[in-house]
């Protein structure tokens, strides 16, 4: 019985952590897969989104959920402007120039946030209905973790349906698989890119707000967690929603279990696991072999 509770609590805790990784990383996976654009500034969108959400709650007095929506929309809108003005100029550039550009953007964001808001961590206070614990029948667990699992799963399902069942999703899949062919059959690539970029950034902003309880919010955010976002994308396979979802859950749960039973190992296992997975499947769990 004790063992059962233990397994349940580990699964739940790990899944909650994995959901945050999924929500923040999914946009990165799609932009990298769809546009072949290495957007290392993706975490900056998540961070600024988180800041907007905290600000919306503190200064505009919005409740948690409307604040999340506001942050998501503002970042999506802002990302359209950035995409049209700057990113689009680099779509055909070599990947390394894209790396240079997006790391430059990260530096600018870090400095700007430090000057405008300050270097300190931004506290996000959860509403009381998300605090404390909830009885699930078989075990009692942290309410917020359960909420994250529900929201993350719903989002994953929604994105997956959108990907598999809508016209837009079909266009994106076609472009990920064969861009030239997609252009040839008359898909408006430019509009598709802008739209996907905006959705990915908006979801990242949502992740910034939802994940603040665990990841915190401070100017270093985009660099601090970049490696984890990249691991999830690489392990999942570029441009694969289901892949990102499974990779994020896998990393989240394993990290949780290993931290609990082998705390001395630190983050060692995550790196070892990533190496093994990538050597086994270089295209990622769900990626197509090229």
């Amino acid at each position: 019985m004790i063992f059962g509770i233990d397994v349940a609590s580990m699964a739940l805790g790990g899944m909650a952590a994995g959901m945050i990784l999924f929500i923040v990383s999914v946009g990165l996976s799609v932009t990298m897969g769809l546009m072949g654009f290495v957007n290392l500034a993706h975490g900056a969108f998540a961070m600024v989104g988180g800041y907007v959400i905290v600000h919306a709650m503190k200064s505009w007095g919005l409740p948690f959920v409307p604040a999340l929506a506001t942050g998501c929309l503002i970042i999506a809108a802002a990302s359209i402007v950035l995409e049209r003005l700057l990113y689009t100029r680099l779509y055909r550039a070599p990947e390394l120039d894209q790396v240079l550009f997006t790391i430059g953007l990260v530096f600018i964001t870090i400095a700007a946030v430090t000057v405008l808001v300050g270097p300190e961590n931004q506290p996000l206070t959860l509403p009381s209905w998300l605090q404390g614990q909830v009885d699930l029948g078989f075990t009692t667990y942290r309410t917020y973790s359960i909420a994250l699992i529900v929201v993350g799963s719903a989002l994953a399902l929604g994105l997956w349906l959108g990907f598999e069942r809508t016209r837009l999703g079909a266009q994106i899949r076609a472009t990920v698989d064969n861009r030239r062919m997609a252009e040839a059959v008359g898909i408006n690539i430019d509009r598709l890119f802008t739209l996907t970029f905006a959705v990915g950034s908006g979801i990242a902003a949502l992740g910034g707000g939802l994940g603040a309880e665990f990841l915190g919010l401070d100017p270093q955010y985009p660099l601090k967690y970049l490696v984890y976002f990249l691991i999830v994308v690489a392990v999942g396979g570029l441009g694969r929603i289901a892949g990102v979802f499974c990779a994020a859950l896998l990393i989240g749960v394993l990290d949780f279990v290993l931290k609990k039973y082998l705390p001395q190992g630190g983050t060692l296992f995550i790196y070892a696991l990533t190496i093994l997975l990538l050597l086994w499947r270089p295209q990622g769990l769900f990626g197509k072999a090229s």
Binding site: A16, A17, S145, L215, G252, P263, G266
Partner: peptide, 22 residues
């Protein structure tokens, strides 16, 4: 004595604290 090391994938203290609670 549980060393918590650097921040993991998600610096969530729940696993460490769960172990303590047990």
């Amino acid at each position: 004595a549980i060393p918590m090391g650097g921040a993991g994938a998600v610096p969530d203290f729940t696993p460490f604290f769960q172990r303590v609670k047990d």
